[in-house]
Computed example of a mutant assay.
Amino acid sequence: MILSPIDTVDDISKAEFLEKYFKPQKPVLIKGFAKKWPAFDKWNLDYIYQEAGDQEVGLYDNKPADPNKATDKPVKYMKMRDYIKLIQREPSDLRIFFYIITDKLPELLKNFSYPDLGFKYFKRIPTLFFGGSEARVLMHYDVDLGDLLHFQFEGKKRVLLFAPDQAPFLYKVPLSVHTVYNIDYENPDYEQFPALAYAQGYEIFMEHGDALFMPSGYWHFNRYLEAGFSVTLRSFPSSPTRLLNMLKEVFVIRNTDKIMRKLFKKKWVERKQRKAFEKSQQALEHHLSKQK
């Protein structure tokens, strides 16, 4: 992988953000952006422990999804308070995925304000994500194709970002929003995944209060370096083309994959893995031939 540092700012105006990052669809890290919120001191695990400790939450781990089960099925359930105590006490790969604040912890919505950066937020689903110090999230892009403003709290996190045009080098799985399961992005094996060596992206280290703008369709891999959580604010699709692509992703491609997975289980998963390798190998050969 060819990883570059990301543009990093301590503050940014709406005009500058729109001109330099939103319009050209370029990511940027805004350091300590959440510290502007009047109730910033409530964005911590202790507050969530107090307010949502009795809730039962579904947990995921680093293992690949069981091909005989739905991909969104949690590996276990636990009280929120027990989960928070666990990740604060010891290393863990357990994480909480897509915790919708408006449904489960609406009080938290009083503790921040949507940044005025010039794009329209989808305010129905601001979402939280939690992870222990060993948790990682498979390389993927978000199926709704929205522009994302992603805030990190408590522990540090490493993020890898790749533009949509880098997908051919990432071993994208057909009819899916993720790459093959067995790539180790912390220690990539370029003999097994030669195309990956040519993927150009960004490496970002996020800390408490930082915000990362991820443009629509950007691939991202998250690795929690310490126990922590994040909130993602999403935008509406900003063009008719993107809206149509989103509808296709959500209602056609996603459901087709679910049906095929249910019918053929492991055989379907293995077939998609093979196709991912074939496509990336073709992309690599094409890339190398152009360099001659």
Rank of each mutant, 00 (worst) to 15 (best):
L18M: 15
L18A: 11
G155Q: 07
G118V: 10
A283K: 03
T241V: 14
E90Y: 11
F251K: 00
D116C: 13
S239F: 00
P194N: 09
V269R: 07
E270S: 06
P115F: 02
F97D: 06
Y141C: 03
K104P: 01
P237Y: 03
V180P: 00
L175W: 05
A211M: 04
Q55M: 14
Q88A: 14
V143M: 08
E186H: 13
K292D: 11
K76H: 07
D7S: 13
G146I: 02
I6S: 07
Y83S: 12
K120S: 06
I6L: 15
L149N: 01
V57R: 02
L161K: 11
K35A: 06
L243H: 06
L160Q: 00
F151W: 03
F122R: 09
V28Y: 11
G155K: 10
I259Y: 13
Q273H: 07
D103R: 14
M214F: 03
V173K: 10
K290F: 10
F264L: 08
E90G: 13
H220D: 00
D184Q: 05
L128I: 01
L233A: 13
L18F: 06
K23M: 09
K265G: 02
K76G: 06
V269K: 12
Y185K: 03
K275T: 12
E90F: 10
L243T: 08
F169C: 06
N255M: 13
Y190K: 03
K290W: 06
H287W: 09
K265W: 02
P240W: 00
K258S: 13
Q25I: 04
L247G: 08
F122Q: 05
F129L: 11
L3C: 09
V75F: 11
G131K: 11
K69G: 00
F221A: 01
Y141A: 05
A197Q: 10
H140D: 05
Q166L: 04
E154Q: 13
P106R: 08
K42Q: 13
L288M: 15
A276C: 10
P194G: 04
K26W: 10
Y47A: 13
F112L: 14
A163K: 09
F213I: 06
E56D: 03
E191G: 09
Q152Y: 01
L148Q: 12
E154F: 07
R95I: 02
L161M: 15
L196S: 06
V28A: 12
I259V: 14
E134D: 11
E186G: 15
A167T: 03
L117S: 14
S289M: 12
N68C: 00
P194T: 04
T241D: 08
L160D: 01
L3W: 05
M260P: 02
G201Y: 01
D7R: 08
D257C: 10
H140S: 10
T127C: 08
K248C: 07
A276T: 11
G132C: 12
P188M: 08
K292S: 15
R81A: 15
G217V: 01
N62M: 06
